[in-house]
Structures are given as C-alpha cells and as structure tokens.
C-alpha cells in the first residue's frame, strides 16, 4: 500500500489540475507530460501547461466488469475525451446516465473520487468529465 501512495501522490498535479506540458520548440500541448515531444521529438525540458478541462467525447464504452477497486462503481462509462487543446485522454464520465453519452458531447473536467483503498486506506481523487454545465442548461 505504501508504494501505491507514492505512485498516486506523484500524479497530484496531473490528476487535480490537468497539468501537462507544452513543447517549447513546436508548441504542441501534451497530456500526460512526456520526456520527448510527440510531434517534433524535441527532448528539452518542457514547461508545464494547465489544460482548460474543456473537451468533447471522442469515443466511449460502458464498463460492467470492472478492475479491482472500481467494482462499486459499475456500470460506468469510460471515454476518450478530446481536449480543446488537442490531446486525447482517457477518463471516467460522471453526472450522466450511461445511456445518454454521445460522441461529440461537450464535457468539462471535475475532480471526483476515483476509488478508495478499502475502509481504512486513502481516498484517490482525480479528474473525471461531465456534460458541460453551460451547455447542459
């Protein structure tokens, strides 16, 4: 469990604030952060970039047989979300019925519980996406 804690803790800025990187050479924005630019292979240190959290559903699937730690949430929908800034990221959708998810649906990032490590363990928080409030009306 202690190595798990360190692994999650290192991802705090990614998971809480959607912090990725922007390539100083070609300007492409990346999430999660990479050592080498995916577009131009530049390997100089990339500055942090905080994504807006806005995007749209690129594709999705509903999970009925969940991996360990996520069984309590089934059935839930996992989507590939195309962020406004370009990257595709994988995340759970929340605050939406599984039957109402559509490709192209505008979504926004929220911070929610991803899972808990049992009754006595830590609570893992991170990004999920929900239908955009301003659009959902």
């Amino acid at each position: 469990m202690t190595t798990e804690i360190a692994r999650h803790w290192r991802l705090n800025s990614q998971r809480y604030q959607l912090v990725g990187e922007v390539c100083p050479k070609c300007g492409v924005k990346m999430f999660p952060p990479r050592d080498v630019c995916l577009e131009c292979a530049d390997d100089t240190r990339q500055p942090d970039y905080q994504f807006s959290g806005r995007g749209e559903v690129y594709s999705f699937t509903t999970v009925h047989n969940a991996p360990e730690g996520y069984q309590e949430s089934t059935p839930y929908t996992v989507a590939l979300v195309k962020l406004e800034e370009g990257p595709l990221i994988t995340a759970q959708l929340t605050d939406v019925a599984n039957s109402e998810v559509e490709i192209g649906m505008p979504v926004e990032m929220v911070t929610r519980k991803l899972r808990t490590q049992g009754e006595e363990g830590v609570i893992i928080y991170g990004y999920k996406f929900r239908p955009r409030l301003s659009v959902a009306g």
């Binding site: 929340t94 605050d95 911070t111 929610r112 519980k113 609570i123 928080y125």
Partner: peptide
Amino acid sequence: GGPDEDTMTIGLE
C-alpha cells in the same frame, strides 16, 4: 451527492 462525491469534491468545485 453521487457515489464519487464527498465534502472535498463539493468544497473544491
């Protein structure tokens, strides 16, 4: 609150 919400997530939004 939904199953993934608690006082932290509510306070944060």
